[in-house]
């Protein structure tokens, strides 16, 4: 990212900085969470979101957002994921194999659905229903899912933490996913 240029811009439309800061702080964490699903690495998710905000800032003055600001930010982050890791300085950081896996992951996560993931996140009802659906899972199934989803533990780590076999973790994870899909399907369409 071109920080010198960014700083130049900051001095130019300095008076807009508080509004931009508000936007940043209101959406930063949620956008990182969103980006994490695409890249599966916290530090990369944060970099992408920060880079996206810098880009938004660079064009802040002549930006005319047609949809909601939130939807615009989500879409920008989503679009930036693949571009960001294609930069040479990011490529040099990961080995070839890892980079390929990362690109393939982003592509799979990017595959279009209607509504788009970004649009769905606008849907407050979905968030509410998702939490409800998780609470409906059987206790062990719920524990396994939460440790994977929210603590980002690996299967062996979950198996150790809960004192169950990796095979059981596997079974409970697929079960959780199936049930969540069944519960949320009407909302995902």
């Amino acid at each position: 990212m071109n920080t010198l240029e960014a700083s130049l811009h900051i001095s130019q439309h300095k008076q807009q900085l508080p509004a931009f800061e508000g936007l940043f702080k209101a959406h930063y964490a949620a956008l990182c969470t969103f980006a994490f699903d695409f890249v599966n690495r916290h530090e990369l998710a944060e970099e992408i979101v920060q880079d996206t905000f810098l880009k938004v800032w660079e064009r802040y003055e002549d930006l005319e957002i047609q949809v909601s600001v939130k939807a615009y930010l989500y879409r920008s982050v989503q679009n930036n994921c693949l571009n960001y890791i294609k930069q040479d300085r990011i490529r040099s950081r990961y080995g070839h194999e890892l980079l390929q896996q990362l690109e393939s992951r982003i592509t799979l996560m990017n595959m279009p659905a209607a509504p788009t993931p970004a649009e769905r996140l606008e849907n407050a009802e979905l968030e509410h229903m998702a939490e409800k659906a998780i609470r409906k899972l059987p206790p062990q199934c719920q524990d396994v899912f939460r440790l994977s989803r929210f603590e980002q533990l690996s299967y062996p780590e979950i198996s150790r933490q809960l004192g169950i076999s990796v095979n059981t973790v596997k079974t409970q994870m697929t079960r959780a996913l199936q049930r969540l899909r069944d519960e949320l399907l009407p909302l995902l369409k």
Binding site: F24, K25, Y28, T33, F34, F36, H42, M111, A133, R149
Partner: peptide
Amino acid sequence: YFIQLRDAWMATAATGPYNADAAWEEM
């Protein structure tokens, strides 16, 4: 089929270990 499961997964996202204030200062 994949998209359905993926989107069910994405619908459950919770906030991760991100600190907006620290990130803002860093930027």
